[in-house]
Design a protein around this nucleic acid. Sequence first.
DNA 1: ACGTGAAACTACGGCGGTGTGATGATGACG
DNA 2: CGTCATCATCACACCGCCGTAGTTTCACGT
Lengths: 162, 162
Amino acid sequence: MDDGTASDGTVEEGFSGKRAAQICGITYRQLDYWARTDLVRPSLADAKGSGTRRRYSYRDLLELKVIKTLLDAGIKLESVRSAFHYLRENLGEDIVSAQLVISGTSAVLVRDGAELIDVVNRTRGQGVLNLLALDDVREELDDAIHLDPAPPDRSARAALGS
Amino acid sequence: MDDGTASDGTVEEGFSGKRAAQICGITYRQLDYWARTDLVRPSLADAKGSGTRRRYSYRDLLELKVIKTLLDAGIKLESVRSAFHYLRENLGEDIVSAQLVISGTSAVLVRDGAELIDVVNRTRGQGVLNLLALDDVREELDDAIHLDPAPPDRSARAALGS
DNA sequence: ACGTGAAACTACGGCGGTGTGATGATGACG
DNA sequence: CGTCATCATCACACCGCCGTAGTTTCACGT
């Protein structure tokens, strides 16, 4: 199932919906819901009716896993939505590089401790800060991909760049 | 309305439900819901049927305002519940003194920046941290009490200890 | 002491968001 | 061209409220 190779021998990149859900530790229903409510759409191939297949990229999985982590931490999906909206608009590939700091509907990336203290001080009176170490999430994701039920196939290795 | 004095001239301590909600910036329905579902019960006088009155203490208001701040930051009520459960069990009067750090269902208090960095580092891989400066909340609350629609009355001043 | 009016709580139905489960539809693969 | 994995759709459940109508009390004036 979903070995990543198509009938013509070409390599299908990325991950099927089912596998994406398994790897990220979310239910398939959640994945489906998020795709249909525009939170995370599969960037390689979106669904176009029954029988078609979604194809998620490695980066998609990363986002899914970050979201899952935020949800587990007790953050509202609504808040996650706006933070991601902001992140996608204001940052390129750097989404996974350091500490993610979410304050209400906006978000920032922070590299080191000093910067963190700085943000914390500047945010005095602005409410609450949510911190997440993104590189940890990446590590967990990579582990999960290798421990996966389906053996790591060419597409997974390709997506990982290893 | 609700000037804090009873007919016999005695001073009723604390704040009515309506005033508590106004001061803390939450709706009366929220206050009611939280009281019914055991999140924050008025410690001076709980409701015992229609016509009775809830009486909230200054400390209650503090908790309400902290909760309101957490909700505004996009934290799920469910998560707030368990954090407060934990806080009430593990800490006495110190709830309002420094930085509140919530990680999943547990919580910690942190005094200075170094301690904060420490916690952040120790929590690597444990998910998300939520930070809140409690003293700021207290300041806001005090301001709100003085700016209140109803003039600060004896009970409010008494509760403030000023 | 007592009627009165308004404040405050209660009950109940409903709504939007976030899913879940079952079942049906359909493209993809062999 | 049949089988099967995957997606679509629908109905339903739960949480966290909101609005409103109903009920009860209590302070106050007489």
